[in-house]
Nucleic acid binder design. Sequence first.
DNA 1: CGGCCGATCCACT
DNA 2: GTGGATCGGCCGA
Length: 205
Amino acid sequence: MFPGKPLEQSFYLNSDVVEVARLLLGKVLMTSFKGWITSGVIVETEAYAGITDKASHAYGGRLTKRNEVMYKAGGIAYVYLCYGIHSLFNVVTNVSGIPHAVLVRGIVPVDGLELMLERAGKVKLHPADGIGPGKVAKLLGIHYSHSGLSLIGSIEGNSDTKIWIEDRGDLVEGNIVAGKRIGVDYAGEDALLPYRFRLDIKKAP
DNA sequence: CGGCCGATCCACT
DNA sequence: GTGGATCGGCCGA
């Protein structure tokens, strides 16, 4: 039914978090809760480069209850609450001990459109409805309580709660555009790094 | 223990 | 363009 297969852990162990952010564009982020599947093509990401990156939650080696999953081996979710309202979904990358992560900032909805409409409280999906990190989590039903969940091989097993990422080829086509990250002005020079990537969409599914 | 504020979104002007 | 929502984490006292 879903032709792709989950990305393997080797993909997430990549030591170059900026490259992973770029490679995630065009991949399909999927969730399944009690068998209800929704998904979207990732079209916008941001890299957060660990203890040397002032914009990262792990800057300076900061280690708290919230961000401890960033220090685990790549291939798990880091989800946290922002502004008291929004769950923001990140992919943890690199080997254990190096707290790299990629924030997923935008998707184009693919599977489970009706359920996503319901989650969004809308009657029709507008192309912009999947753009924005809070909206990504909302449409896919991701909650900060899912932080730490494995993204590897979760399609196997019988858990009620699954999150994973597939490569299904070019469902969305466009040029990759790099730019500075959003909402991180407090990070000084690091706020200017070109760690944000998006697909300038030419063809949507 | 108190207070500030954030990797945001939406309604409203 | 702007401000309110809403709450866990973090820092300073």
